[in-house]
């Protein structure tokens, strides 16, 4: 691989262990985020997108969550091995996060300006006046006049609140921004504004971004690379154009068949059969095999390895590794 990823997740396994059973939330997940790029993490409800993001922040609730194995490499250090104290310096400062619901991720009894200032004071050695100045600058950056510094979240519309959340996340100029469905709760016209803003800020601040979403349209607009998740693992990881033009994994192909596209008039959608598997009771072998139109015998018994199609495209599917098996055995 030519470039070195900024953040590299290798064979991560995260389980939620309760007395009712073990939920395998993340299974052998591999993910690479390159400097200055946006990686789209796409998957359906329960695919483990949010757990992945929380793992990157080392914020998986423990108990019941446990990182069983794997590495999350960031600047040659493994985040899973850092102490809470070291992590606190990274969180919010070098890696920060935007949550899905702008309505609940702001504190209703603090002014928006103070909420931005709080993060700055926490991570940067600056005095109150500098922090206040920087907080009002951040408001301007996200397109909110600084006169509104002393207003409370309820005085803002949904799109404006999400801008405030973005301002908080970017206030310490993080290297990595994790955005968990940042526009799902917003209307289309507002979503366009927020996405445009994030795009511009990403360029200005040279931030790498992990964009978690279920919307392939949003990914096509803002991402450089795409990782498709299914049942806790990334099943396909590719440069955007490759993924959209030649999706390889049957699940990825299924996703594209499932969404109506305004640019094409298809009479019938081609949905993926069946339902998402129960994470407490995942199918054996490839977790997608019960729904896969191309399932083979091997799919029921063996978890597929990563097959690299080229430098920027890999897939976990036996369809593409089938030829390799002979030589290995």
């Amino acid at each position: 691989m030519s470039r070195k990823p900024l953040l590299d997740i290798k064979n991560l396994n995260v389980h939620y262990i309760t007395h009712e059973g073990t939920t395998k939330a993340i299974n052998d997940l591999n993910l690479a985020l390159y400097p200055g790029e946006t990686l789209g993490l796409v998957g359906e409800t329960g695919a483990g997108k949010t757990t992945t993001a929380l793992s990157m922040m080392q914020l998986v609730p423990d108990p019941p969550g446990k990182i069983i194995s794997g590495e999350i490499l960031y600047h040659d250090q493994d985040l899973t091995k850092l102490s809470e104290h070291e992590l606190r310096k990274i969180r919010g400062n070098q890696i920060s996060m935007i949550f899905q619901d702008p309505m609940t991720s702001l504190n209703p009894i603090m002014t928006v300006g103070d909420q931005i200032r709080e993060g700055i004071l926490l991570h940067q050695k600056v005095d109150m006046a500098t922090a206040t100045k920087r907080a009002s600058d951040m408001l301007e950056v996200v397109g909110i006049p600084m006169e509104r510094y002393n207003e409370y979240p309820h005085q803002f519309s949904g799109g404006m609140k999400q801008r405030v959340v973005i301002a908080i996340a970017l206030s310490c100029n993080p290297e990595i921004l994790i955005a968990d469905e940042p526009t799902t709760a917003l209307d289309v016209t507002i979503q366009a504004q927020v996405l445009q803003l994030m795009e511009n800020l990403k360029k200005d601040f040279n931030t790498s971004m992990l964009m978690i979403t279920h919307d392939l349209g949003v990914v096509a607009n803002v991402c450089d690379h795409v990782a498709i998740m299914y049942a806790g693992t990334v099943i396909e990881h590719a440069e955007k154009h490759m993924l959209y033009r030649t999706p390889k994994h049957p699940y990825t192909q299924g996703l594209f068949g499932s969404i109506p596209n305004v640019e094409e008039n298809v009479d019938r959608l081609k949905p993926i059969m069946g339902l998402m598997p129960d994470p407490t009771n995942l199918p054996t072998g490839c977790t997608f095999h019960p729904r896969c139109p191309h399932a083979m015998d091997i799919c029921q018994v063996e978890f597929p390895r990563i097959t690299r199609l080229n430098d920027e495209h890999w897939v976990r599917c036996h369809l593409y590794s089938a030829d390799e098996e002979v030589s290995h055995e």
Partner: peptide, 10 residues
């Protein structure tokens, strides 16, 4: 013909 059964059905 729309699939309703699946391995994970309760």
């Amino acid at each position: 013909n729309v699939a309703t059964a699946s391995a994970s059905a309760p």
